[in-house]
Design a binder for these strands. Structure first.
Lengths: 229, 229
DNA sequence: TAGATTGTTAATCGATTAACAATC
DNA sequence: TAGATTGTTAATCGATTAACAATC
C-alpha cells in the first residue's frame, strides 16, 4: 500500500470508471483478466495495481467490484470533499465550475472569481461571479484547499500568487502559462494543447502513410472496431 | 528522425512553448543545459529529443531558437491547418470552440453542432450552432479531419459513430465515456477527472503527512519558489 | 478433484541519466 | 589554445510482461 506513482494513479482512476460503468453481467465480481480485456491492457498489470492498494482477489472468482470501488475511492480521497474556487469566469472557467462529474470525485467548486468588473455579479453555472478582492477572505473563511486557474497567460502568475497567499494547498492550472510556485504545493498543469499536439502528429503520420490521393469519397468502414482506452 | 513516442511528443510541445516564451536574454540560441534548467529536467534528455527530430546544435553555442521552433512546428504539423468540428454546444464545447490558443497549433474549429433544438441557431463563440442532421454533409463537403466530442456520456458512442461515418480521421474526446472506435482512427481521450484524481491524491498525502492540527492561520510563505513544469 | 485465477518472482522492455570523447 | 557544449554510447532505473507455484 506504498506510495503510488503516476501511471498507477491514472490507471486506478480508469479502473474505477470501468468498474462503475460495468453492465449487469458482473454483479459482484470481476477477474483481472476480464477487466484487463475491457480496458485493453495486461491482466498482470491489473493484479499488480490492485495489490499496490491492498486489494485481495479470490482464485477462480476475481475481485469484488464493490471492494474495488471502495478501495480506490478511499485511496484517492473521493469521500473527503475538497473545496475549490475557480479564478477566471470565461468559458472554460464556467465549464469547469458547472461540470457535475467532479462531484463524484470529491471536488466541490464553491465559488467563481474574475477581475473583470463587467463579469462580476453575473451568474455562471450556479455561481455568482465575485470580484478578486474578495478572493483572499473567501479562501481563508471557507477553508478552500484548491485553486483552479482559467485566466489568460499574462494573469496566471498574479492569480497563482493570490491563491498561494490565501493558503490553498493545491493548484489546478488550465492556463497556458507556467507560474512559479512554492515546491510543496500540489500542482497540476492541464496542457490542453499538448494533447492536441499528440493528435496532430498522429493525424499527420496517418496522412503521410497513404499518399495515394484518392478523390473518390468511398466510405469503407474498415473492419474491427475496438474499445478505446 | 524516427517515430516519436508519447513522452517525447509531449516534451517537444513543452520545448516549443518554453522557447516561444523565452525572454530577451536568449536572442538567437540556447544550450540544452539552459533549456533543461528552465524546464526542470535533464540536459541529456533535451539533446536526445532534439537529436530524435533532427536538430543539430553547436558546441559552445547550443541550439538556434528559431530552428527549434521551426523543426517542432514542422514535426507536429502546426503549419498544416486541421479543420475540426465540435459536437456538443455546452459550456465546454463553447470554451474549446473559442479557445484561441489552438490556432497556433494548426487547429481550426470550423463549426459547432448540437442535437438540442433550443441551442441550434444560437451563436457560441463565433459559431452558429448547427443541428446534428447537417453534421455528415458538413464534414464531407468541408473535408473536416477531426471531431471533438463534448457531449454527455450517454450520447458519446452515437456521436462518435456519426463522426466516423462522415469520415473524420481523428477524434478528440472530452466526454467521460469511452466509445468503441475503428482502430486506425487517431484518438485521444482527455480525462479531466484523471488529472483531478492525481491532484486529490497529492492533497490527501500532504494532509496526512502533517497531522498536527494547528488552528492558527499563520501565513508562512515557506522558502524557495520553483518554476513549475 | 480439476481447473481457473490469484499473488509474486523473474525476465524483458523502454526510458532516463551518467559519462565522456569529439568539436567548435 | 582552453573550455563549454554537443552527440552518443553505456549504465541505471523503473515499469511492463511473462511465468508459474499457491489456492480456492
Amino acid at each position: 500500500m506504498s506510495k503510488l506513482n503516476r501511471p498507477t494513479l491514472e490507471r486506478l482512476m480508469l479502473y474505477y470508471h470501468s468498474v462503475s460503468t460495468l453492465g449487469e453481467e458482473h454483479p459482484t465480481s470481476i477477474s483481472s483478466g476480464q477487466l484487463a480485456q475491457l480496458m485493453d491492457m495486461d491482466a498482470t498489470q491489473v493484479r499488480k495495481d490492485f495489490a499496490a492498494v491492498g486489494l485481495r482477489g479470490c482464485p477462480r472468482v476475481g475481485f469484488v467490484t464493490n471492494e474495488i470501488k471502495e478501495k480506490i475511492r478511499d485511496m484517492l480521497g473521493f469521500d473527503r470533499v475538497q473545496k475549490a474556487v475557480v479564478v477566471g469566469a470565461g468559458r472554460l472557467g464556467g465549464a469547469l465550475a458547472s461540470y457535475k462529474e467532479f462531484r463524484k470525485y470529491g471536488l466541490n467548486i464553491v465559488a467563481l472569481f474574475d477581475k473583470d468588473p463587467t463579469k462580476v455579479g453575473l451568474t455562471v453555472g450556479h455561481h455568482v461571479v465575485q470580484p478578486m478582492d474578495r478572493l483572499d477572505t473567501f479562501i481563508r473563511h471557507q477553508n478552500v484547499q484548491l485553486g483552479i486557474i482559467t485566466v489568460p497567460a499574462d494573469a496566471t502568475q498574479q492569480v497563482a500568487n493570490a491563491l498561494v497567499a490565501a493558503g490553498v494547498k493545491g493548484i489546478w492550472n488550465f492556463s497556458p502559462a507556467s507560474p512559479t510556485l512554492p515546491p510543496e504545493l500540489a500542482y497540476r498543469h492541464e496542457h490542453l494543447s499538448v494533447g492536441l499536439a499528440a493528435l496532430s502528429y498522429r493525424l499527420k503520420e496517418a496522412e503521410l502513410a497513404k499518399p495515394q490521393d484518392d478523390p473518390s469519397s468511398t466510405q469503407e468502414q474498415s473492419g474491427m472496431a475496438t474499445k478505446t482506452d
